[in-house]
Design a protein around this nucleic acid. Structure first.
Lengths: 190, 190
DNA sequence: GTAAGTTCTTGATTTTTATCAAGCGGCAGA
DNA sequence: TCTGCCGCTTGATAAAAATCAAGAACTTAC
């Protein structure tokens, strides 16, 4: 099983011949540092699984930029509103470093359902997992202090802190870079 | 088309014979005021569409209660982690008033997919809509002040403010009841 | 290797929101 | 009708986090 097939297996729980069959639809693509994968107003018609690099999903909202998510190796890069509902996106998706992806077009994505009979069901399960993750994130934003949110992200995704500019992580957690810096200092002293 | 079939049509975009076919799986159920639909640790094995009353979904977390959502007429009451993944819930789901629902059991829910071939696809679309709504909610929590969040909820769901105790709405928006009260006062003066 | 530009940190201050505490008002039950 | 309770409001104060501003540390480019 190659790298791509590992990713597909992890995401959708497929196995055997299906892996190679689906894998063949994905093409290797690359983004240069600062290049955009998607901009607001565009309809996202690709889905990428990230091999390397750092990709930031953010919204620009009167003067301030809100980082919705940071994707690293293994991340799932797309915009569901485009991919599934053919709606224009609100998001910027931009490479913070050079990045490599396995990418499938919307047409091929739709084609999978003709090849793999249970595909819609697997998609459902995958999207439901995403939904539950969002539910957790909302809970963390509703109930936790900035320090607790830091601890939460650190536990859920420690790798981010090695690789990603802290200002973006701060935005993603709903705090300013200064606040994050002070929290980190406090934690380092312990 | 009866009331239940209207709901089913709105949720999943079905029509014609399918509506009656799926509708027949739902049974009318009722909750008394303060009765629990679900408690933490239980696996949710029903899905309800709400006809009347107010139902609160919340998490109890060392001394404080966090209201995740308030459901009114037309609301979708379930816990996906139980319904789809057979996992125990983190949530309390409780009727704040007497409430009536159309309810389907997990077994019948699964059975639908044998009756309606495209069922998994419709479920996928429905869950994807839920996901996108959560994405918006996260954006509102990350980027907006308490006043803006109030305005946001008021625009998305004005009905809630007529029917639901304000303390729960405050929690749902990530603020204290006192803060919500002050915001409302300020808005009323304009 | 140095200059220029970022990004991160630190401190001082202001703003926002939570907390604490008291009082008001409507509603349910005796 | 009265009483007690619950939910909402209001005010005073405290805590948390944002903002503003400056400087340090790290990158990148030449």
């Amino acid at each position: 099983m190659n790298e791509l097939e590992e990713f597909i297996k992890d995401y959708w729980g497929l196995s055997g011949d299906d892996l190679a069959r689906i894998g063949s639809y994905f093409k290797q693509t690359a983004l240069k540092k600062n290049e955009f994968f998607l901009k607001p107003g565009k309809i996202c018609n690709t889905l990428s699984i990230q091999r390397s690099g750092i990709i930031r999903i953010y919204i620009s909202d009167n003067e301030q930029e809100i980082t919705q998510w940071i994707s690293v190796r293994g991340g799932f890069v797309s915009d569901l509103s485009g991919l599934i509902f053919d709606q224009p996106s609100r998001y910027y998706i931009q490479a913070l470093t050079d990045a490599e992806c396995y990418t499938i077009s919307h047409e091929d994505y739709v084609r999978i359902s003709h090849v793999i009979p249970q595909w819609h069901q697997l998609e459902k399960l995958f999207i439901a997992r995403c939904f539950l993750f969002m539910e957790e994130r909302i809970f963390s934003l509703l109930s936790m202090s900035t320090e607790q949110r830091y601890a939460w992200l650190f536990n859920h995704n420690p790798a981010l802190f090695n690789e990603v500019p802290l200002q973006y992580l701060a935005s993603m957690m709903g705090m300013t870079p200064e606040t994050l810096s002070r929290i980190r200092k406090k934690n380092a002293l312990r």
